[in-house]
């Protein structure tokens, strides 16, 4: 095949015999059942996120007590925060996704982690903890909005 050639292929469609789907796709009742199943997992989520918050706090404390390996510990903070970001919204805790997204973005940009960065990381971890402790579902209403604005202001300060 030359660099310029493009060939179209219709793949073998073994699925036609296995899957039937109307033009409208999954019907509303089935979709509602699937959403109800996810909602029923919210209790599990609250247990999982407790583990994530404990691990976040642990990684933060190691980053503080072991500054020579701070980058390694901050990478771990990023990894856990990334999981928190990905899960919160699925289980009705969109505010967890928002705050964890801020934490991930901030951590990604840190070149030389200093005390000011560690302080802001701690604020985010505390905010995540607050959301779960207070069961601030969804976007957290006025309290959630205030929390997010506060974090944005602090991030703005260290970004200058």
């Amino acid at each position: 095949m030359s660099d310029d050639e493009v060939e179209f292929i219709t793949p073998p469609n073994k699925l036609q015999s296995k899957v039937t789907m109307s033009a409208g796709g999954v019907d509303p009742a089935t979709l509602a059942r699937a959403e109800a199943v996810i909602a029923s997992l919210q209790g599990n989520y609250l247990q999982w996120v407790e583990d994530d918050l404990t691990n976040l706090q642990g990684a933060y404390e190691r980053a503080m007590s072991d500054p020579s390996n701070r980058r390694v510990h901050i990478s771990e903070i990023f990894r856990i925060a990334h999981d928190v970001k990905g899960q919160g919204g699925s289980f009705g805790y969109q505010l967890m996704t928002v705050i964890a997204t801020y934490l991930c973005r901030m951590v990604e940009k840190i070149e030389n982690p200093g005390p000011e960065h560690m302080a802001v990381i701690k604020l985010h971890i505390d905010a995540l903890r607050l959301v779960i402790t207070q069961r601030m579902e969804g976007t957290g209403g006025a309290a959630g909005e205030s929390l997010v604005k506060g974090l944005e202001a602090v991030i703005g300060k260290i970004s200058r």
Binding site: M1, I9, G25, G89
Partner: peptide, 24 residues
């Protein structure tokens, strides 16, 4: 992520209802 039942089923629908030809 975060995923929802609606988004996941929409992606599955797209695969099965609107299959695209392959290109080589």
């Amino acid at each position: 992520k975060p995923i929802s039942a609606r988004i996941l089923t929409a992606r599955i629908e797209s695969v099965f209802l609107r299959p695209r030809p392959f290109v080589r």
